[in-house]
Design a protein around this nucleic acid. Sequence first.
DNA 1: AGACTATATGCACATTTTCGCATATAGTGT
DNA 2: ACACTATATGCGAAAATGTGCATATAGTCT
Lengths: 116, 116
Amino acid sequence: MRELVKVFRALSDETRIRILKVLLERECCVCEIMQALDISQSRASRNLGILEGAGFVKSRREGLWMVYAIDEQAMNSYVAALIEVLRGSLVNEEIILWDRERLSRAMRVGPRAIRK
Amino acid sequence: MRELVKVFRALSDETRIRILKVLLERECCVCEIMQALDISQSRASRNLGILEGAGFVKSRREGLWMVYAIDEQAMNSYVAALIEVLRGSLVNEEIILWDRERLSRAMRVGPRAIRK
DNA sequence: AGACTATATGCACATTTTCGCATATAGTGT
DNA sequence: ACACTATATGCGAAAATGTGCATATAGTCT
């Protein structure tokens, strides 16, 4: 139960939904999330952490970068179903399109260069 | 987006998940929810209102009673999928079993008789 | 080692959420 | 109209949440 609540709570925030929609496009490091959503570094990092804690996302280190990706397997029962719901949602939502646009121009350049 | 967040937010609370699991058993008036979950009247009413606002639940008046039920049709795209996720979840969760047990003994007797 | 980088996190603060209490509202029945 | 009932809701308090700022942590490179 605790677990299920945590899973839904993770999705009950616009920032985190936007992050997941971006990660459904492709895996990203934190600074790419910052650029795609145009948000601060701590905000990106913290919300990625919450998504990871709920089981939506996994991370791996790649040099200085932490790369986050949708956890396609491993997901506990509900998570997989919820990812599918998200995959089909918000397909024409303006902010999601913007995020995708910015993502396409994002580079692994680090927050120093972005100053958010 | 606003709508999607509202839907997930509605599920991000243990009380509301318990209510939905009870309503998946059968429709209930507010006082039956109070008895099944062993919670106060205002708590039952308010959380039912939130579930209704998010589209999970519909209500009809039946004399003095307001009867709440899972909104099987009408549900906007995601809601139906989420109901299905819930239907398959928590099948052996202790608190859910207790709620169901208390529900089976609940009667339309009104909060006056329950004093919660 | 030291300088530099990307990411995580402690802290403070504002906002939101949840809930109980008391009361308002709406319907029933005399 | 009046008494009574079930449910909704305004208000206040406590707790939880989201975020920015500054700093800590962890890794790279010379």
